[in-house]
């Protein structure tokens, strides 16, 4: 398993031999990261091959697992980081960050 040094995330450029990317965003929809919102991230992650994580404080969730996203507890205004590791990591987390910034299409 990989061990992310998320305390110094800005220095993140590679992990092992794989390129890594990171974007920090805020959950801006009123209801927070609930089932349908998390589902949108899971669906969006599908076409990518990179490992993708959503990190909150010192805990991280696998973006491909809705259960791990839902057990992270990310209400309105939570700051989270998207971290991708792999060839298409940067593209993937850009897509994911956009979904979060668009408030999952909600209020």
């Amino acid at each position: 398993m990989l061990d992310l040094e998320i305390k110094r995330p800005n220095s993140l450029s590679t992990i092992g031999d794989s390129p890594a990317s990171k974007i920090t965003v805020k959950i801006k929809n009123r209801l927070g990261l609930h089932g349908r919102a998390a589902g949108k991230l899971v669906t969006a992650a599908k076409p990518f091959r990179s490992k993708l994580f959503l990190v909150r404080d010192d805990r991280r969730a696998d973006v491909r697992s809705i259960m791990s996203l839902l057990t992270l507890e990310c209400p309105y205004n939570t700051e989270v980081s998207l971290i991708g590791i792999g060839e298409d990591a940067e593209e993937a987390i850009t897509v994911l960050a956009k979904i979060i910034n668009d408030r999952f299409g909600e209020a």
Binding site: G35, R36, A38, G39, V42, D62, S65, I66, M67
Partner: peptide, 13 residues
């Protein structure tokens, strides 16, 4: 909510 429930069921974990 059925879509969410389907996803929970198909969760790889």
């Amino acid at each position: 909510i059925l879509s969410t429930h389907l996803m929970l069921l198909n969760d790889p974990h």
